[in-house]
Simulated assay, not measured.
Amino acid sequence: MDDDKHAFLTDLLTTPSPSGFEAVGQRVWLDYVRPFADEVWTDEYGNAVAVHEGSEDADVSIAFTGHADEIGYIVRDITEDGFLRIGAIGGADRTVSKGQHVTVHAETPVAGVIGQTAIHLRDYEGEEYDDIDEQFVDVGADGEDEAHDLVEVGDPVTVETRVRPLHGTRLAARGMDNRVGIWAAAEALRSAAGADVDATVYAVSTVQEEVGVQGAKMVGFDLDPDAAIAVDVTHATDNPDIPGKRTGPVELGAGPVVSRGSANHPSLVDLARDAAEDADIDVQLQATGTRTGTDADAFYTARSGIPALNVGIPNRYMHTPVEVVDTEDLDAVGELLGAMAAAAVDAAPFGLDL
């Protein structure tokens, strides 16, 4: 991965963007895509779109999308002692939250920690994990009034971590889900613009995926592209503690993952696989018999049905503060999306031929 792309990814990963509070992260994304987009715009909830205008004669449009939001917490109450009771934003994992440094994104950011009683003081035999709404943040306040001077109910909270290179091309950070998806959408647009492809290409950074693919529902109706490719993380199942029944074919560093089944339109599966073969890009396959769990689930039922596909990026330890991806997979997914954009006109129309 070259320095500019790596710097962009780092900027995304270090900008907190919990669901419902994505504005700051969306500004980072928009600043990056503006130089090579013909037009950019946002909607009322902060979904962001950048476009490469293709040939008028081609009249084919394809959208590459990721979601800007991340899981987190939200302040739901302040106790008399000055501690903050929290709730979950999205699928926050209660087993990894205690003992973490956090930031409360108040008018002025406030440092805190999610409290964990010392092991010396707990009867830990047979203990169970507390639900998120039973946990609390300690910001150092001496009582309720002092805490109220710092934060308000409804302020979002994110875990404070850093982007840390691991050995080789592996990278660890909070919020890979799904900064890597909006990174890939931006790189797809840059590739399409650089090649001046005939298709009209939209890069989209949606909001509120983690709370029910809400932004994609808005964008799918408003944009109405001929095809929508949702790029999101998917579970790498190659680490030692994956349960046997969950073990699957997805490996870190083995390339982008093309999903088959449910929302994934067969014509777009073919487009992705053919483009990968022509560009000599290794891809993996994944079965999604019921749902993808991504924005593709919203796009394919928008309006009268938008042909959709989920392209996955292998990710270890999803929804924890230490998600791990391989940057070679990121480079490969950017190349794959660019190849799909270049081939879109020849592959269209995308409807089933019955």
Rank of each mutant, 00 (worst) to 15 (best):
W183M: 06
M218E: 15
A7I: 11
T117W: 00
T288Q: 13
I114M: 10
F136K: 13
D295H: 01
P307I: 00
A50K: 06
F350Y: 10
D3T: 12
G66M: 10
D297H: 02
Q284H: 03
I114A: 00
I306T: 12
D38A: 06
V24R: 15
R316I: 08
V207A: 09
I281P: 02
A118M: 07
G338R: 04
I281N: 05
R190A: 10
D238P: 11
A302Q: 13
I182C: 02
I242Q: 13
E134V: 00
E210V: 03
G20C: 04
S267C: 05
D138I: 04
A272P: 14
L12Q: 04
G154E: 07
T95R: 12
T247N: 07
D57C: 00
D133T: 03
V204Q: 11
D270Y: 01
M176V: 01
P243L: 01
E160G: 00
A50W: 05
G99K: 03
L268F: 03
D81S: 15
Y32A: 10
S262R: 07
T15V: 03
E187A: 10
E134A: 11
V102F: 07
A230V: 07
D232Q: 09
I242C: 11
R190L: 07
S55C: 06
L330Y: 06
D278I: 01
A92C: 11
V219A: 08
V60E: 08
H148C: 13
T288W: 00
Y129C: 01
V113H: 02
V283M: 01
D331A: 15
A118E: 12
V33S: 08
R291E: 12
E128P: 02
A37D: 14
G305V: 04
N264P: 10
V250C: 02
G255P: 10
D196C: 05
D93H: 04
L189K: 09
T42N: 12
R162G: 08
T294P: 09
L330R: 06
E125K: 14
D226T: 03
A276K: 05
D155C: 05
G261M: 11
Q284G: 06
A279V: 03
T14F: 00
S205K: 10
I114H: 02
T327Q: 13
M1H: 11
I71K: 07
I71S: 12
F221N: 15
S205Y: 11
Y202H: 10
I89P: 04
Q214Y: 07
P349Q: 07
D123Q: 14
R174I: 00
L337V: 04
L336T: 02
D3S: 12
L252S: 05
I313M: 04
K217S: 13
D155L: 05
T301N: 05
G66R: 08
A287L: 10
R94F: 01
D295I: 00
K245M: 11
T320R: 08
D177R: 03
